[in-house]
Nucleic acid binder design. Structure first.
Lengths: 219, 219
DNA sequence: CTCCGTTTGTTGAATTTTCAACATACTTTC
DNA sequence: GAAAGTATGTTGAAAATTCAACAAACGGAG
């Protein structure tokens, strides 16, 4: 587990927890690491929501596919991020989403019941862990508000611009990369890919933005 | 405060907390009650996210209005529900949403810093409160996933049917009332009101649903 | 009961999005 | 470095949504 310490210390779940205690804690939590190749399923819709994940390396996407095969991307998962903790914490029977590896990745899986219910060793850091989980869930809620701010816009142009402005703000620069290719961006914004490409071209010709593939610049 | 005990005991935030302790706790938390008339603003966008609310009686809506004046309804708030706790818990500077009373209502306001940081009296129920808050935030996350499931659908018909099926499931019956009038439902589903009315008529004539104003029935 | 304000339903035109099909640009593999 | 595969851009037709304007139904006040 020691090789993952650096990335785990960046994980919001372990805030205020010392390195030495973190290693002990991972034992208490029964955490294990699994690797997934690109396009492999990490969690699949309908499976029991027993574990949550922590992305150690690589990236993944939380998606939802309806019965017509339309894919909707809920969010992307980057290293050090916790995912699917809401379903596990709320103790729902089944995960309502699918998580797919976007590139080869390593994931730490934690049995959520070990976090929610005091472990046999009366691990002293339990309370801190629950506090961190609470903070993390609050941050996720805010992320959802942002996603709703984006997708509630009625036109492709407005959705795109709202998304790009939020990304610029997050990057702290008008020049930034996004974690999606065109099809993925369309599935995240809930719009048509070709219409999105057309809109990007239009914004480029109007001098509002510059872009090349995943790189964007607000002018 | 005693007159509010019955409704507060139904609030998820006070799960596993005895009635006698609940009253003491409200003192520790510096909770206060305010009343709002219909259409009055309970929290407004951009104001400091210091307090969260508990709806004691009446109802409200969490909304977002963009610079064109388009209203989007994020969710409705019913009695015993906690609201705006995510912004307060994540300690963001400003609330990104507006909360408007939908009818005359009474709201309990709690300073979130009293919940997050141990009170001077070392209130024994603090940990339980944080645990409940965590559970509640997880449940809210799931609510957002449902909202995204609804609004990610591309057509008015699919959004409406997805919403109605979730409401039927929640009500445990194919016959139920929704908390929105037509304009509000349109603002919740992120579609045009007249188009929504047309779609409802169409579904009625096709024998898929029955409806009258806020009452719906899946056939 | 009637009036008046509000909500809901209806319609057609304008706009926008989606869809399908193809062209072009880029990447990876051998 | 050529070939194959993938991603992006472009276009026009079809479909859906939005918009505006009005009609009908409903509910509350007096």
């Amino acid at each position: 587990m020691k090789k993952y310490i650096d990335i785990l210390r960046k994980c919001a779940l372990f805030n205020q927890i010392e390195e030495e205690n973190l290693i002990k804690m991972l034992g208490c939590l029964g955490a294990r690491v699994e690797s997934f190749d690109k396009k492999y399923t990490i969690f699949s819709e309908g499976s029991p929501a027993k574990y949550f994940g922590i992305m150690l390396s690589g990236s993944a996407q939380i998606i939802r596919v309806d019965y017509y095969g339309n894919r909707s991307i809920v969010s992307s998962i980057e290293p050090a991020e916790v995912f699917c903790e809401a379903f596990a914490c709320a103790e729902v029977r089944n995960t309502p989403v699918t998580v797919i590896a976007n590139e080869p990745c390593e994931v730490m899986l934690v049995d959520c019941s070990h976090v929610l219910h005091t472990c046999q060793n009366h691990c002293a850091f339990h309370q801190q862990l629950i506090f961190n989980l609470m903070k993390n869930l609050a941050a996720k809620n805010i992320m959802f508000h942002q996603k709703i701010e984006i997708t509630s816009k009625r036109s492709t142009r407005e959705k795109l611009m709202t998304y790009l402005m939020l990304q610029a703000k997050r990057a702290g620069s008008n020049s930034f990369d996004i974690p999606f290719d065109r099809q993925e961006l369309a599935d995240y914004l809930e719009v048509d890919r070709s219409g999105l490409s057309a809109e990007i071209s239009k914004l480029r010709s109007e001098g509002v933005i510059n872009s090349h593939r995943k790189h964007f610049e607000l002018l």
